[in-house]
Write a protein that binds this DNA or RNA. Sequence first.
DNA 1: AGAGGTGGTG
DNA 2: CATGCACCACCTCT
Length: 611
Amino acid sequence: MELKFDPKDPKYEYIQDLKALDKALEELEKCRAIGVDVEATGLDAFNDILLTVQIGSPEKSYIIDVRDIDLKSCPRYKELLENPKVIKILQNGKFDYKYLKYQTGADITNIYDTMLAEGVLTAGLGSGYFSLEDMAMRYCDVQLNKSVRKQFENVANIKTKRFNKEQLVYAALDTLVLFPILDEQLLKLKKENLVNIAKLEFAATKVVAEMEYRGIRIDVEKWRGIIEDLKKKRDVHATNFYDTIRDFYQSNRIDLFGAKVPPININSQVQIMDLFNNRLHLGIPSTGDAILAMVQHPVAAMLRDYRKYEKLISAFGESLLEKVNKKTGRLHPEFNQMGAATGRFSCENPNLQQIPRISEEVPFRQCFIPAPGFKLVTADYSSMEMRILADLSGDEKFIKALKDGLDVHSYTASLMFGLEFSKDFKNKYPDKRQAAKTINFGLVYGMGPRSLAAQIGVTPEEGKEYMDRYFQLYPSIRSFLNKMAKDAVRNGWSQTPAGRKRWYKLPDPDDPDYKKKIGSIERQAKNHPIQGTNADATKYALVFLHDRVKKEGVEGGLTHTVHDEIVMEIRNDQAEDWSKIQCEEMCRAAELFLKKVPVAADVFIGDVWEH
DNA sequence: AGAGGTGGTG
DNA sequence: CATGCACCACCTCT
């Protein structure tokens, strides 16, 4: 590839005064697209220090030292970055977005994100994270020197120390390589018909950046109260456990203060296996909860009780509170747009998508609260995956049930077990409904008769019978799922109606695990269009909602999303009206793909996160 | 440092 | 032959 810069000696300008900045901006304003990158002392846009902002044309990079120049008092800079007509090319743009918003006062628009583009082009094959170093090497044979980035992190005398040539070259290349990478990616995106999905991801990345920036408030005292309560309960179960097993161990050690020392580490899977198999002779294959539930010995129950509390304390305890940002006093979880191969978001630091559902004992979700004067508006799609399955398979019975507003699990059960359908089916035949629900969901995951039988507690033969009966009821569902599986194995990829692709590493025919691997791909491919369409709809909804907030002049914004649920923080007096708009926009997004079945979303307005 | 086990969510 | 999808956090053990 012909590069417009020399990787050994790139053209750049180190900008340290307003006059030079003005001249640079004049050049940059002529560009249709500019490359943007920042260097900072760390990853936290609120607490770490922004050092440089690099803005580049395809040929030249301008490195603005923000210790010398206050970009907040430079409207021309802000106008450039906020100009919707200029494409801003970034690598993992939401990282830079937050720095630029907080420390330079600019909200970038019209982002092309090289990392997201790569994610869209290789979904299912990689981790979802692609470093600029890898891409620069792969696409344009340019070696970026990673170790130089470290130098930015430990700048002693941060106020005064100037950058060396090596650092400046590195900073310059970071914007220059973006252009050839974009050129190559664009060819591939067009070839794979992924332009629309890439556009969706690019539109979403600004929205996600704003969502991360806003974050969410947490009631720390209430959270601590729950944890303390859980710790007390956990300790009771731990003591019971230790007292019961102590006789099976030789040493009854006493510590310096006369307290009994636990004979084993209760958290050690290895030591628990030793206890159950070598000392209690119970012969368990693993220590998972499903196994322990079947073990008659009282120690098993004690361990299960202990684990229930220990899990909550370790995963959601003090460690989550440590993530409260010092500057904002709020949690700012990170949402990875390509976190799942299906197109779903993943979430980390902390993962708000795995906070336990609300219960008497563990009301964790009630600790998530809006700012004073605001409400949390929580809306989730109703039976979204069932609706998608109905729509994509085109199954007439299933579609009619949804059109008639029936509970699909009850309806399925009534057909499968020859029972009369009624409004109170759920109460009359809860077991039958649960069995049908297991099948409905299991199929979306490509489940087989054996695990179905295990789940609903019948023999494998009966499990097979249930599945046969189910598919006789809904013949189009069987043919749809089979087609998805077959196409994926033939093509090496599967696709959602929105055009999102997921690739598969097809095994070598000589692979000893060939059938196992093909089976796995088939199950993933059956699930992909369903889970993926849900993700596509939610992403469109996020973009719609963000635009609508601006259009309506509503004060507030997005706080987080959990796959089929979107939570927003909206000013008290506007929350009621907004809740209707939020449902409307979510439905409008889903209706882009679902034409045969109605879409519905339920909404809640509250002073806590609940639904 | 990374793998494996366990368990929380949709 | 094996046989339910998609994640992340925490723990122990190597």
